[in-house]
Amino acid sequence: MTTSLALLAGSVSLVGVGAYLMLERSLTRVLIGLVILSNGVNLGFIVASGDPGDPPLLGEYAALDIADPLPQAMVLTAIVITLGTVSFVLAMAYRSWQLDGHDDVQDDVEDAAIRRLAAADEASDAFDLTVTASPDDADDEVSEEEGSDGRPVPDLEESPHEPSPAPRVSRETPVLDEQEDRP
């Protein structure tokens, strides 16, 4: 079996363009992508089905010269199914436009709610830590930070002049700010 390169390239580029369009948010573009993609796939089906030949009519042409009718029947079925799908998506895009004034695919409401809940949760935990943390804990954290900064560990004599309060403030400031911010 020989394959027509032009048909194959056409099929591949149609599938590529269609797949790209289906990644869009607007339902109309998805629809156009669907149409192009399905045309590409159907063309590919024809290419895959074998050599071209005479029309497959019984008694009119020699049985060995006719094209394989089975894939043609299948592609025809697929075309009809795509037609139905396209009309349904079109109706859905129109309904979406009626309701919202656009046909963009929206984020899922519950997903967004869970994301926000998680954010609230983290905020409440941060709040919890800063309020209940004892001064000792805060000192520990500061000394840890100093260690990680690679500064020399201060002597006991030098400790009054240490800039240790500074990191403590800088660490807690954003949280405290949030607290000030409350209504």
Partner: peptide, 27 residues
């Protein structure tokens, strides 16, 4: 409509994959 959009688009895509699979199988 919002939920249906996701459902329809995903399933269209899988149908297209199925059709490609059919073509390859038949070939």
């Amino acid at each position: 409509i919002r939920a249906g959009t996701i459902y329809v688009v995903v399933n269209i895509l899988s149908s297209m994959l199925f059709l490609i699979g059919l073509a390859v199988t038949y070939a």
